[in-house]
Design a protein around this nucleic acid. Structure first.
Lengths: 148, 148
DNA sequence: TGGGAAATAGGAATCGTTCTCATTCTCGGA
DNA sequence: TCCGAGAATGAGAACGATTCCTATTTCCCA
């Protein structure tokens, strides 16, 4: 499915002097199916059963090629998602209890305003190539129910 | 200095059924002096030379009491800063290379707009008690110079 | 002043991630 | 088609930040 995605990733990898191997294709496919940041552990334990060394190594390659992005959450575990170039610019809702992540988008108009303001702030602090990260930390329904 | 800060922290701890011990005071004082998110390691190695078990334990207590906040960065290490209730609402500029963090604030007007929009998004996804996190990831001058 | 709960210090244990290396695969050239 | 060099893989060791365990010390207050 979505051959465009895989073509795009292949191009990215090739540009980085890397091959688009079956393992890498598997990872990309899983991330596409999941549709939101997936924990590294989930990828290791996925039905495909990929060795963790391969998961970590290939995610690093894909990240360097700009195909995936590492998402930082409150939990101690790493999560990865497809790069925004391959999907759409978005933000995250992170559950502070279970670490679950949901993608959200905000109005383009506000997005632009934020973008412009933050770019100015970055320039003032002499930071280069800054991208913004807007996340929401809260408690998801499931975790709320458990506590209650 | 700033007895108000320590009083506030003491109140927070007491409300949480905890004591404001010298160690905890030291940590708060260091965080105040640093003025930006400090890596756990820095606190361990600080001139006071606090055992790491004490650093971690007390930071956890302080965090639970709402006196400090854990900041997530791209690096694998934890950073802590005084809670916003004790300082002011702000955001971070994070260097993707060295992990350095600089505090920044954005115009109150934009802040409110972002706050309102994100609150709506959180409600739509059924997330409760959401706070936003707006960070900028870039490369600081020092790291840029090294690469160049 | 004494008893008991909380805090501390040191180190062991844990866990996600990175590294190492021997083996396997892949691709381009002969 | 076959070969050889470089790339990728897989298994496990190594690493580092954090958490956990436990004996000892400190603090509160009766």
């Amino acid at each position: 499915m979505t051959p465009d995605l895989h073509h795009a990733v292949e191009d990215l990898l090739r540009a980085a002097g890397q091959r688009y191997t079956p393992k890498r294709r598997d990872l990309v496919e899983i991330l596409r199916k999941v549709g939101r940041p997936a924990a590294t552990q989930d990828l290791v334990e996925g039905r495909r059963g990929m060795p963790q060394s391969s998961v970590y190594r290939n995610l690093a390659v894909l990240e360097q090629a700009g195909a995936v992005r590492r998402v930082i959450t409150e939990e101690g575990v790493g999560r990865y998602e497809l790069a925004e170039d391959l999907t759409t610019h978005h933000h995250h809702l992170v559950c502070r209890s279970c670490g679950a992540v949901v993608d959200v988008t905000i109005p383009a108009r506000l997005e632009r305003t934020v973008e412009r303001t933050l770019a100015a702030a970055a320039a003032a602090a002499d930071f280069e190539g800054a991208v913004h990260r807007v996340d929401l930390i809260g408690t998801c329904r499931d975790c709320r129910d458990v506590t209650a």
